Computed example of a mutant assay.
Amino acid sequence: MTGTESPDSAVPDTAVPDRKKVRAFARQLFGMYTQGALTYMVDLGHRLGLFTAAAQGPATSPELAARVGLDERYVREWLGAMVTAEIMTYDGSAYTLPPEHAAALTGGGSKNMGPMAAMVTLLGRNLDGVEEAFRSGGGVPYEKFAPHFTGVMDELNRRPLDELLIDAWLPLVPDLTERLTAGVRVADVGCGTGHALALLGAAFPASTFVGYDLSSDAVERARAESDALENVTFEVADASSLKPERPFDVVFAIDAVHDQADPAAVLRGVHDALAPGGSFIMIDMAASSDLAENVGNPFAPWIYSISTLHCMTVSLASGGAGLGAAWGESLARQMLGEAGFGDVVAHPAPGQGLNLIYVTRRP
């Protein structure tokens, strides 16, 4: 320190880190990498039916391989990962999937988290493109994720919609079930494979339903599923230029607004497409617009990560706003107000901790 410097102005010495903290963080990092690798193992187990086969009861490696018609050597190595990760148990001869673990990895209900692993596998395929976007701007276009993204999202959303849409989510909107029963015009923007409308169309035959999505392969699948429903139709269309011949009474947007190129235009378009007094139900990520408030939210690392790897980059690829999945409740309310909507009520989505259900109306 020179004679002109004071002790208060000296830069603190941060060159020597705390060794215990370094070791602890290194273990944390290795744990993250291990869990990442195990996610691929879970995805394989789900794809190949190994969890479903294991849930039938204890089995040796050859027995489990025979149940699903797979190569025993691969099954044995996969079982090694499952046992050491404490997903399955091994008594020296037979492998067992505990019933509590089977409940979270098998079955057709929303509690089956096996399909979620496929999202990690899929997003990793475009990591090089995201890296380049970090360096040069822009993003990775949706086409780079297709057609696999369509199938992954369909499997992730189908189970919760089956269990929750009609019985748990619709009752959050006053009089909505009664209006659908009586007969109203309904749209779903960013409808994906259209499973929500297939359920609604079958449950409420007096109402008519139109689904809009940019993805032609998603719309093709939607039309195939709802082929027998005369009150459900689909169009390949940009939600930001929504101009129906007649106004809608109800519009849904299920996990669709935050990755749009122009989400503000989508919200304005939905507002203008609604009849006065019409309802808008927007289901989106449960997050705060303030990063500091997301610290401690167990879903936040997932939300920010999938946003970087898909939602935000897809929007930026087309010169869009890059709103991102973590746009949060405060910004969502602000944008809904700017689009012309009235009071907004945000409900935690029953059965889906990742989501909020925003309910508002065109005045």
Rank of each mutant, 00 (worst) to 15 (best):
A224D: 01
D262R: 10
L172W: 05
S318L: 10
L214F: 09
P160W: 15
G278T: 13
G353A: 10
C191R: 08
G45I: 03
D167E: 14
I281P: 05
A202P: 00
T313V: 08
G201S: 09
N355F: 10
A317M: 04
L229A: 06
F51G: 01
H258E: 07
D284M: 11
A133K: 02
A256I: 04
A26W: 06
V184Y: 02
M41V: 10
D284G: 05
P115Q: 04
A228P: 03
L38M: 13
S226P: 09
N157R: 11
G124Y: 02
G129T: 08
A168W: 13
G324N: 05
K144A: 14
A55L: 08
F51R: 01
K111I: 05
S61Y: 06
R135F: 11
A326V: 08
A55W: 09
Y90D: 01
L156I: 12
L309I: 00
T89S: 02
V22P: 03
S240Y: 04
L127N: 05
V68T: 14
M32H: 01
W327H: 08
A103R: 11
G340D: 12
P147L: 14
Y304E: 00
F149N: 08
V140L: 12
A222T: 06
M32F: 01
L64D: 03
R158L: 13
S318M: 08
A253Q: 07
N231K: 13
I87G: 01
L176A: 03
T308G: 07
T84I: 07
D255Y: 06
D154F: 15
A55Y: 10
